[in-house]
């Protein structure tokens, strides 16, 4: 079942240094996402992947985004953990709970992410890897139908990235993953949409487990 249909005519951003002028960032982009599928939006830094994700979630107004069954509940994991530094780990997670959400789920959630006992700590005591895991916990606490991951593994050391990939693999929600790291695609995605060009368009769509995928993407 299709949960998301993207038929974006294009998107322009303000030109740096030229007041009132715009420049195209995204060209026409079209794809669909099925329920339970993890789709990676793969492309170089600055090509507009995050902007596309914001358009999809309605954080930036735009046209061409359709949720056939109605807008689902979404939750983000950003590249920056974006935790409130003045709130404890548990409070940060609690703020994302749905209106009828129960705080009692937080200890189990922290436990499942290897953060047992860290609920009362403030974020400035956490390493980047731990903060990212808290950000994942916060996203899961929001009980989302669709998970939006914006480079959630960037800047992590190999062990921390591997641990977080294992956590994300466990939760098979419909997921859109923005990344420029092939290891994330290989570990997490069912399908990869390769973006590139100026303005950015789709250069290719592949099954993530297709043999020789890295070479085929590199050849684009």
């Amino acid at each position: 079942m299709t949960v998301l249909r993207v038929d974006l005519p294009g998107y322009a951003i303000p030109s740096p240094g030229a007041a009132g002028r715009t420049q195209p960032l995204l060209g026409p982009i079209g794809f669909e996402v099925a329920a339970g599928e993890t789709v990676a939006l793969f492309g170089p830094s600055g090509c507009g992947k995050t902007t596309l994700l914001k358009l999809i979630d309605g954080l930036i107004p735009g046209t061409g985004i359709t949720w056939p069954s109605g807008k689902p509940r979404t939750a983000w994991v950003f590249q920056e953990p974006s935790l409130l530094p003045w709130r404890s780990v548990a409070d940060n997670i609690a703020l994302a709970l749905p209106a009828a959400g129960d705080r009692a789920i937080i200890p189990a959630l922290l436990d499942s992410l290897g953060l047992a006992g860290w609920g009362d700590a403030f974020p400035n005591r956490l390493s980047l890897g731990m903060a990212r895991r808290v950000a994942v916990a916060r996203a899961l606490a929001a009980a989302p139908d669709v998970l939006l991951l914006d480079e959630p593994l960037a800047s992590l050391d190999a062990a921390a990235a591997q641990g977080l990939r294992a956590v994300l693999r466990r939760h098979r929600l419909t997921t859109l993953l923005v990344t420029h790291d092939f290891a994330d695609v290989a570990a997490l995605a069912d399908r990869v949409i390769v973006l590139g060009g100026n303005p950015t368009v789709i250069r290719g769509v592949f099954d993530a487990w297709a043999p020789g995928l890295a070479e085929r993407i590199a050849a684009l």
Binding site: L59, F78, S82, L84, L95
Partner: peptide
Amino acid sequence: PQLALMARAFRFGRWKSFRHV
């Protein structure tokens, strides 16, 4: 701005964003 984006992404609403962020 990143915290403001987080508040919008998690649909905090005006009062919750003002109070907590």
